[in-house]
Design a binder for these strands. Sequence first.
DNA 1: GGGCTGAGTTGATCTGAATCAATGCCTTTT
DNA 2: AAAAGGCATTGATTCAGATCAACTCAGCCC
Lengths: 253, 253
Amino acid sequence: MSDQTTCLHQRESRPRRLILAGAHRQPGYCLTCGIRAQSVCSVIDDDDIARLAEVAVETLVLPGRTFIEEGTAATDFYNITSGNVKLFKALPDGRRQIMGFATTGHFLGLAVSDQYAFGAEAMDTVRLCRFSRARMRQLMDDFPRLERRLLAEASNELVAAQNQMLLLGRKTARERVASFLLDRMRDATDPSQDVPLPMTRSDMADYLGLTIETVSRTLSWMRAERLIAIGRGHTVRVTASERLETLAAGEAA
Amino acid sequence: MSDQTTCLHQRESRPRRLILAGAHRQPGYCLTCGIRAQSVCSVIDDDDIARLAEVAVETLVLPGRTFIEEGTAATDFYNITSGNVKLFKALPDGRRQIMGFATTGHFLGLAVSDQYAFGAEAMDTVRLCRFSRARMRQLMDDFPRLERRLLAEASNELVAAQNQMLLLGRKTARERVASFLLDRMRDATDPSQDVPLPMTRSDMADYLGLTIETVSRTLSWMRAERLIAIGRGHTVRVTASERLETLAAGEAA
DNA sequence: GGGCTGAGTTGATCTGAATCAATGCCTTTT
DNA sequence: AAAAGGCATTGATTCAGATCAACTCAGCCC
């Protein structure tokens, strides 16, 4: 698989392949066209490659920059090739809800609507690949596997969104933070190691529907209870994952 | 469009057409095969029709019956052909979060996972069409438009889920109820008429992340404020939609 | 009719998390 | 090294919504 990592922006060898990321959290090879290396999906000819190279525009986004504004015309479709992004919605008075964190391999701007349903802000330097939505539609016509990949992606996000609804609607602060830490642990490259929490307390609070004070207090409580050890530089080590699981599932009193 | 409403279970006329619901809230014609009449998507031949009829199993679900159990093996794929369904997740101690209400035309069981991510319970007598997931995959191979339809459906649900996350994470009780009533109003066949609320207060509470008492109090408050008039038999008339919009958007103090 | 049941409303009280307020602790700047 | 600014922690107090409780009302079954 990893030898099929032709970048579609470099056009010297042939035949080329359209490559889609299978497990999108693993680092890929093709970082300029947004369609990442992992598993070969569909062999295409040189004409197709020319078209792809033409539609895929690489973009660099600086940390803190909001590159998708909620409610503006949804002209483009994005694929993150590196970096971390937070997706959010806001109320007029400033209250904010973070819908999720997206990283390498995620697609943004899938909505059918003609307006972006949420904003997107770079948490660090983000490299992404931009397509016009019209071209995206064309791409989907040409490569059915791309469409299937997007459907799988959307389904997974839907499941995550539903879990988050349960969390936001019915879980206590302690259960929310426990669930969050375990999610992060599962997403981490090495679950046995320290869990990285690259976001601020404010981001965690806006993701979990809490305030920064409550997040901070809850983490302190977990440390006092010997559930976690708070490391330096935005990391946490889970020291009692079973008890944390029980807490996250809402079984504890 | 409406003359192309051949039911795929009746097999007397030819050629047949695979028909997908465009606006899935409008009543359709084909109520036995689950693939509903609205817009023609792809002409198929008689062999295809035979296969479709074979895979589509009509099922009748009685009110109150849970026909998808959260966490059980996800063997089937459903399309609702009539009736109302509530989708929910629950915590071990009984706390429940309703993810949404599904009606005629909605698809259930889209998840990539091998387990259902949520439970589904019939709110009234529900007619639905069941496919094995393997057959569903096969169908998608044969009819790309079906896959596109599912992607659109999933995208729309994702947008709805994100709105709900904002509601659950950051809105006050009054804002939640106002948002809910307006959503129901938009979904109603005739927005100027009374808005039907076929669900119980308990369902509303579990959907909005509140308690039945808070929902009841909030509706009473809205009536006292002349925002709504509470009708008989689970209906509400919105009497000040602009003020309600302002409230739902979170602009009021 | 009379009792029964379940949904809904309203009132009184409690509480978990928000809010308000200090303080601590890094990192950057000068 | 001192000052400044941003993030995080901790404490004191408040409050929105939960909980506990009483009651109404409509449908339903003898």
